[in-house]
Computed example of a mutant assay.
Amino acid sequence: MIILNWIELSIHTTNDALEPVTNILNEIGTNGVVIEDPADLSREKRDVFGEVYELDKTKYPNEGLIIKSYFLQNDRWAETLEVIRLRINNLKQYKINLGKNKMTTDIVKEEDWENEWKKYFKPMKVTNRITIVPSWEQYKKTSQDELIITIDPGMAFGTGTHPTTILSLQALEKVIQPNDLVMDVGIGSGILSIAAVLLGAKHVYGYDLDEVAVSSSKQNRDSNHLENEITIKQNDLLKNVDKRVNIIVSNILADILLRLVDDAWNNLEDAGYFITSGIIEAKQQFLIDKLLNTGFEVIETNQYENWVSIIAQKKINSR
């Protein structure tokens, strides 16, 4: 077995810079992002749904937040780091407050990362019906209606506990009908695809450009014994995809969602739903305008902390 080394790049910045910096890291090819935000220490959601792990206060900054990003260690890393530094510094011309804008690096072995998750990631109820359970934990249902998703985050970092994922899960619960066909664009660790099947979908087609996410989501799909219900492929959003489904769900950055709207329209059945999440408040109206101009009707918007999700519907004969 080949053990990979990963570069952990930590960027101490601000909430204002969170989305543009994360977008830069994604475009350059990060294999995962973790946000260490001191607001996590006092979020009410832990009291509502249940704690994931005990947070170590000493790892959180007193001001701003820390974005941790992971890249495979190779001989091009120094060049990659310089590109990241230049692009982030370039954000100043757009009057984005970068705060301390301090970058540090460390080397993390893959097995060390996995062991760290096993120490801290515990079962967590993320909606009224869905509980996320790590693959190494034993867990018994607390009610007959409870739905269990078994997850091994690996290097895709998706545990289902982020506000944008919870918003997506809640939206799926509202609109999904038995035997629906679903697309999950930006599948990550596969949580939304698995949830869709457990909620009644007949089949889910999952797409992600990141090969690490594709591998992780396939592993989680198989751990939940849903090989026949979920098809996963590497793809750039919905480019060259031509299917008709009842629901498309996408939990990615707002700027990328803007590029997805037209293809989502073309792949939805009439009256189908387009669920989007991963949107900061400042970008909400841009996406709503794009949805409306394309012919969608915005059914509802929901907010969790500083994040927004939108449920839109493809109206019959609206174009």
Score class of each variant (00 low, 15 high):
residue 73 Q to G: 05
residue 71 F to D: 01
residue 101 N to D: 06
residue 74 N to D: 14
residue 82 E to G: 02
residue 53 Y to E: 12
residue 71 F to Q: 06
residue 80 T to Q: 07
residue 75 D to Q: 15
residue 92 K to F: 00
residue 61 P to F: 04
residue 63 E to F: 05
residue 61 P to H: 04
residue 66 I to K: 11
residue 97 N to S: 06
residue 54 E to V: 15
residue 72 L to W: 11
residue 54 E to M: 09
residue 111 E to Y: 12
residue 111 E to S: 13
residue 83 V to L: 14
residue 67 I to M: 05
residue 89 N to I: 02
residue 101 N to P: 10
residue 76 R to M: 09
residue 107 I to A: 07
residue 88 I to P: 01
residue 98 L to E: 02
residue 51 E to Y: 07
residue 73 Q to M: 14
residue 74 N to E: 05
residue 68 K to E: 12
residue 80 T to F: 08
residue 93 Q to L: 15
residue 58 T to K: 13
residue 53 Y to I: 08
residue 73 Q to D: 15
residue 109 K to T: 15
residue 76 R to C: 12
residue 66 I to F: 07
residue 104 T to F: 06
residue 111 E to A: 10
residue 51 E to S: 07
residue 109 K to Q: 14
residue 84 I to T: 03
residue 76 R to L: 15
residue 89 N to P: 01
residue 85 R to L: 05
residue 64 G to Y: 01
residue 60 Y to D: 01
residue 91 L to M: 03
residue 56 D to V: 09
residue 62 N to E: 14
residue 101 N to A: 09
residue 65 L to I: 15
residue 80 T to L: 15
residue 110 E to P: 01
residue 102 K to Y: 13
residue 77 W to I: 09
residue 82 E to Q: 12
residue 72 L to F: 11
residue 91 L to D: 00
residue 107 I to K: 11
residue 95 K to W: 00
residue 92 K to D: 00
residue 94 Y to E: 08
residue 112 D to Q: 12
residue 64 G to D: 02
residue 69 S to E: 04
residue 87 R to L: 14
residue 83 V to Q: 13
